[in-house]
Design a protein around this nucleic acid. Structure first.
Lengths: 399, 399
DNA sequence: AGGATCTGCGAGAGCGCTCTCCGATCCTGC
DNA sequence: GCAGGATCGGAGAGCGCTCTCGCAGATCCT
């Protein structure tokens, strides 16, 4: 990216400056204005070599080190270290002196150095994992609120332990190799994996490498790896019972890809529950968790079973698509057909009619993942664990 | 959102012994079935307790080091290092031998050690910044797709450079201090800041500390800090012109909190554009970017100006709320009242009627932030920069 | 009261890596 | 054949930190 002569004081957008090539279909070509303000500002930011704290009387350059603090406090490095880490008992008065010295020097421990010896980094990798598909560069939809909710939940559980999440994508083999080596060479202590597909190889790789990890949702193939999940079958049962209770007699299902364990469980759980209520056969069409696939599935369902009066979709997006298709054929929701989704996503809550949906406590599940991982890191000999959360039915307008 | 009483028990069988002791305050009241296999040890949560140094003496146990590779290749550490980093010319044959040795040993550089001497970490902090409000524990809504889109955009720009984002929340002063010290002690090389409020102190702190940083959206107060933004006024103008073109004669606006610069710009840009088209006064009610505030604002607008036929809301959530309020009073959208939002969020696209909205290329903006930060880190003397993206109008059904 | 035990602090050895010298080797030109 | 470069590999000094070890001095027991 070319430098531009600072266009004097920045007043108006100097259009036609350097135009980042980032303007594919998003911005009309040339539709980017770059404004550079010169740094005649009082706060000169030549942060180049000047990484010094405003510490008086400390040695020459660079951030203050343990050594510096020790000198100021008149104790040894070891003692300062002990105070910083609160490890072994240190006399109260000395502790005070050291803390004082830490404050005046503005000391802050260098994590790289610490991690070099402790073999702990205080960071975990959050792997958003998918499988590259030909054509589409990414299978991961970051706009899906699911992603943010998971990360948010992890963050809240991690923060009290001063552990930070490093975000990594894992779509290609080289991505996965990168995650693995990051972990192996001590760039992070463990991994929290959120897979978008059942056949994701990431969990297996982690297990084989013997690395601490926890995954979201039960892995496709059983492997010795901790995971957190929702009781998908119970959620589906909730949906089935609700539809039955509302008087539905001809219900159908829109399922997710059956190689995804959760989709599998939701479908079979729904079928079983319906069977218990006398409907032995549930017309089912598969989708792929997208809105469009919901439209398609519902349309196809309608073609074969025009008298459906209840639909259970394996996620909210497909449920929304189903409603769209239903309404397009003049059917009213919920009067003519009742629709239930799965996820209790914000999209569903905001749509009209508001979507009745099976709620899984994503944030808490994510937090639990973090907790399990932390425990595993603290005690590597720990057995593999799993926590299953019970879903609840969030009744709104669509069913 | 209140927790529903949980559905009781776990039906799934335990894989081994059950130890619910791990679920102290971790487990939400009810609704959770914990199934865990466990070792006998009551897990001591002391992070400091289980801190054991790496297995001593076992050569094969620990990860291979430069030393190991050097021994295998029959060269010195320095040479291996040179090969790994491709810094100086190394004879081709020796290079081959070294690479061979790297492959056989499975060597992977220890980033902590490297960063200790290079003072570079290959990581940047993504600060999701807000201000703690009394009552609510968090002002940051991770379920908002905006969050994921930003992170996704950054990720894609960062990845080719092998730089990873570390996620941090900054709500309290101590959070902010943590971010600052992480940066200062070389835990990360720079910060990408996404603020949720205009009066967020984070940007200022970063500047004062002379740390490399880029923020999303123009800071509330002008400070010498690089940022990326969308031309909010232009976006608002687009909305105004569209409403006018569709024949709206009495338009109103629902604004965001006016201490947020972007909300300010959107409102004034809209007002100015409307003034140019003959509507000097635009009835305006403030909201706070939430769905509910949109409902409230629209209701209040309707009470005072029953004849509105066009509404511009400063974000999609509020626009959706407005539509809800409109429909609740029997008005049709877009036939009676046209509504335009801002963000082009996925919620808006999925709602019915689909929301017409001003689109800002969030992913690309985020990617540009990453690029600027990387440049700044590479050349700290670099001037402060800003890139303004042009918004476009995404016309759907609501206007 | 005397030895045993405990407690608190300092000395020092690295953790794995990069990078600056420096010496050894290999060309090149005369 | 030899000086003068140019090139390339090795030795070694740390980067800032933690942690074991050992030694004083305080505390305890019989």
């Amino acid at each position: 990216m070319a430098d531009e002569p600072g266009a004097g004081s920045a007043s108006t957008a100097a259009l036609g400056g350097t135009t980042p090539s980032a303007t594919l279909e998003a911005t009309p070509p040339g539709g980017v204005a770059v404004v550079m303000t010169s740094d005649d500002a009082p706060l000169a930011r030549e942060s180049a070599a000047a990484r010094r704290p405003a510490a008086p009387g400390v040695s020459g350059s660079g951030a203050p080190t343990l050594e510096d603090v020790a000198r100021v406090a008149g104790v040894s490095r070891a003692t300062v270290s002990r105070v910083v880490n609160g490890q072994r008992r240190v006399a109260a008065d000395i502790q005070a002196v050291v803390r004082e010295a830490i404050a005046t020097t503005g000391y802050v421990p260098n994590l790289a150095a610490r991690s070099l010896v402790t073999r702990r980094t205080g960071a975990v990798i959050v792997v958003v994992s998918g499988v590259e598909e030909q054509g589409s560069p990414s299978t991961i939809d970051f706009a899906d609120p699911f992603f943010g909710r998971v990360v948010g939940g992890m963050l809240r559980a991690l923060r009290p332990h001063d552990v930070d999440p490093i975000l990594m994508l894992a779509e290609t083999d080289s991505d996965r190799a990168r995650v693995l080596s990051s972990l192996r060479n001590g760039n992070a202590d463990g991994a929290l994996v959120v897979s978008t597909r059942g056949d994701d190889p990431m969990p297996r790789l982690l297990v084989e490498a013997g690395l601490p990890a926890v995954v979201f949702a039960r892995p496709g193939r059983p492997i010795p790896l901790s995971f957190v999940d929702v009781a998908n079958r119970d959620g589906a049962r909730l949906a089935a019972e609700h539809l039955v209770a509302r008087g539905c007699r001809h219900v159908a299902a829109i399922s997710g890809p059956l190689d995804v364990p959760s989709a599998q469980d939701r479908l079979s759980g729904f079928q079983d529950a319906m069977a218990r209520h006398g409907q032995a056969f549930v017309p089912t069409v598969g989708g792929n968790f997208t809105y469009e696939s919901g439209v398609v599935a519902m349309t196809s369902l309608l073609a074969d079973y025009g008298d459906v009066d209840g639909v259970f979709a394996s996620n909210d997006l497909m449920a929304l698509g189903a409603i769209e298709a239903l309404q397009a054929t003049g059917r009213r929701v919920p009067e003519d057909v009742r629709v239930i989704g799965f996820d209790d996503s914000s999209v569903g809550a905001l749509s009209r009619p508001a979507l009745t949906s099976v709620r899984q406590p994503i944030e808490e599940m994510a937090a639990e993942m973090a907790r399990i991982l932390l425990d595993t890191i603290a005690d590597p000999g720990r057995r593999v664990t799993s926590t299953i959360f019970e879903p609840t039915l969030r009744i709104r307008d669509s069913a």
